[in-house]
Design a protein around this nucleic acid. Structure first.
Ligand SMILES: [Mn+2]
Ligand SMILES: [Mn+2]
Ligand SMILES: [Zn+2]
Ligand SMILES: [Zn+2]
Lengths: 142, 142
DNA sequence: TCAATAGTTTAGAATTATTATAATGTAGCT
DNA sequence: AGCTACATTATAATAATTCTAAACTATTGA
């Protein structure tokens, strides 16, 4: 519960008001040992449980996007018509389990740096992301 | 127009009936020098122009997915809530221009093979895709 | 302390992409 | 030509996301 102060400051620093919804969201998102991946629906569920009351979907969308813009969250692109977000905002790559729809971080040692030899004139590279899709080995990809 | 025969055979080979919609779709998709990327809406537009009449959205979705399942098309994952498809079905990587929302193929020499050192037990790798997001160099990423 | 203000949350409507339904149409075979 | 299986279509349904406008709240400064 003392983490709360940190979150208040954190939010203030970037010009977001520390409302109870945002503080609860911060707890759920950032007050934990390891980073994790989630969908909006996952998050709504988790926050509702924590607050013991409903939170508006619109608020979750708005706040997630506010956090994303501030660099607290990253959106991950997967072949799906659903958005996945990541509390790990460092540049990193992913395995995506097509059986379970689970995202798994690669850490630095899992993949050698991607060596890009081409550049698009007038454009700079904003990000380089590798997505490795995996599926059950025995009874193969359905 | 002589390509038509090829497409009829191509469709027959995989058990799809060569209807006029599918033949037109084949022309638009495959009767060209270079492979390309498209969204469903792009494609509806192109086919309607070619046929000089409307084609049902449902047919385009169904047929694109039929083609995808047969391996004639590939779906590309991008940070967007829209699906992009690719007539280049070989394993390859992409640049995505965040200004224009244009996808650009990398060819084999543009990126060194991605070296993956970790494996998920019980899972096999189905695909490895690199997405490089680029944006205008001067007045930076908005 | 407390009202004014700017920013926030909310329910619900709107929008967009995608998929399902069920009636009608057509290709392929006889 | 006529049968049958498969395809196409218009339309409705679903799902994710965004918009709207009214109600609410944190912050500021009188
Ligand atoms: Mn998004
Ligand atoms: Mn799809
Ligand atoms: Zn991650
Ligand atoms: Zn491509």
């Amino acid at each position: 519960m003392s983490k709360n102060c940190n979150f208040i400051e954190k939010l203030r620093e970037v010009g977001l008001r520390p409302t109870k919804q945002r503080l609860n969201m911060c707890e759920v998102l950032f007050n934990r040992e390891k980073t994790f991946h989630f969908t909006i629906n996952d998050l709504v569920q988790m926050i509702s449980e924590k607050m013991n009351q409903k939170i508006s979907l619109a608020t979750v969308y708005n706040t997630v996007h506010a956090f994303e813009k501030k660099g607290y969250l990253k959106e991950i692109s997967i072949d799906s018509h659903k958005s996945y977000f990541d509390t790990n905002t460092s540049a990193h790559h992913h395995f995506f389990d097509e059986d379970t729809h689970e995202l798994i971080d690669c850490d630095a040692n899992d993949i050698e740096p991607v060596n890009i030899k081409k550049n698009i004139t007038g454009k700079k590279i904003n990000s380089v992301e590798v997505l490795i899709k995996v599926a059950s080995d025995n009874q193969n990809q359905k």
